[in-house]
Amino acid sequence: MAQRLTIIGGGFGGLTAAVSAAEAGAEVTLHEAHRRLGGRARTSEGPYRANEGPHAFYRRGPHWAWLRQRGLTGPLARIPLGALLRTRYLHDERLRALPPLALTRLAARRDAPVGRTFLGWASEVADERTARAAANFAAVATFHHDPGLLSAAFTQERLRRAASLPPEAAYPVGGWQSVIDRMAARARELGVRIETGSRLEALPPTNNPILVATSLESARRLLDDPGLTGESGRTLLLDLALRPRRGDAFFVSDLDRTGWVERFTTQDPGLAPAGEQLVQAQLPLAPAESRESGLARAEHLLELGFPGWSDRLLWRRTAVATARTGAVDRPGTTWRDRPAVDRGHGVYLVGDQVAAPGVLSEVSFTSALEAVSLALTRHPTHQHTR
């Protein structure tokens, strides 16, 4: 008899687990609280196809080959060479065409220690000015207001991946929802039972393994485990549709603080109606920083990269994302110190804040495969009563 598996959460991690488990022959039921699958990988409906925050795949990540082998990435949008020439960096209060050369050299290093802050280590191997700029640039892959305070090894890995040439970033045509839709279709082909609008207030009583692929906050409630916590970033999201103007930037990175703006219709024009451009900004917020402060910083970057943007505005959406930006590791800690995948009693945790390696969505992916492997090999037989 096939092993039965219950998955709670229909985001990227939950769907990865569903496909993986079904391919291994398990009978899978997936519960998603919302009417649409995707979690943070959802893309907005309507004329403006905006992801919930800037999203991209890193092509050297472990999930890339897995998705490609199954045809789940779909067509990819390519960044034109001319667009890369329209990348800008705010440094020392000046907009520049290139980052500091010393930053590029620092990004290539692979010897950052776990036990020190990135800023402290990088200030010694380069200089404090370069170290600060590099830390702020790394926010594009940490979503933290001050990556210089984090473990040097943690921040350095993300800096290296974000600054690599040629760029690692890849963009699915139509936004991340297109990938989610293909993953869901593949899961259904394999016999996965997907129930949307199915919000569970407690773990279902079953003798079979349960994978909890939700936010840590939701997992804490479902597992009735107050100790299930982890640090994550807090960030302002700003999505805009603008009338185009010659000379608009492709990407603007704030090296004096943290934050960036990217024009996603550069590589995927179909994300907005013809003759319009979709721009997304992300500004990591300090714990006490207000939404208004983040908006002011975002609008400053917009004015630098998209002069007169407010007179060309066609659509606008703003939100603040809290504890939804993936785990961050403080000095002296690594991914192994995050909440364990195996929670005992046949329950397994999946997500981007758990004990699995990788960058951003790679953590969800890796934890999903580990959770499935553990669930299908240990064959728990007890009854859950939570």
Rank of each mutant, 00 (worst) to 15 (best):
Arg4Pro: 00
Gly11Ala: 15
Ala22Gln: 09
Glu23Trp: 12
Ala26Cys: 11
Glu27Val: 15
Val28His: 13
Leu30Met: 09
Arg36Asn: 04
Leu37Ile: 04
Ala41Ile: 00
Ser44Met: 07
Glu45Gly: 14
Asn51Val: 04
Pro54Trp: 04
Leu76Thr: 09
Arg78Trp: 13
Arg86Met: 11
Glu93Asn: 12
Ala102Asp: 10
Ala108Gly: 03
Thr117Ile: 01
Trp121Asp: 04
Glu128Val: 13
His145Asn: 01
Thr155Trp: 02
Leu165Met: 11
Ala170Cys: 14
Tyr171Arg: 00
Met183Gln: 13
Leu190Phe: 10
Gly191Trp: 05
Thr196His: 10
Gly197Leu: 10
Ala202Asn: 04
Thr206Trp: 07
Asn207Gln: 11
Asn207Ser: 12
Ala213Glu: 03
Leu216Trp: 07
Ser218Gly: 12
Ala219Gly: 11
Leu223Cys: 13
Asp224Pro: 06
Gly227Phe: 05
Ser232Asp: 09
Leu237Met: 09
Pro244Ser: 10
Arg246Met: 12
Arg246Glu: 15
Phe250Tyr: 15
Thr258Trp: 00
Gly259Trp: 00
Glu299Thr: 03
Asp311Asn: 05
Arg312Ile: 09
Leu313Phe: 06
Thr318Glu: 15
Thr322Met: 10
Gly326Val: 10
Gly332Asn: 03
Val341Pro: 06
Val341Arg: 06
Leu349Met: 13
Ser367Met: 03
Ala368Arg: 01
Glu370Arg: 12
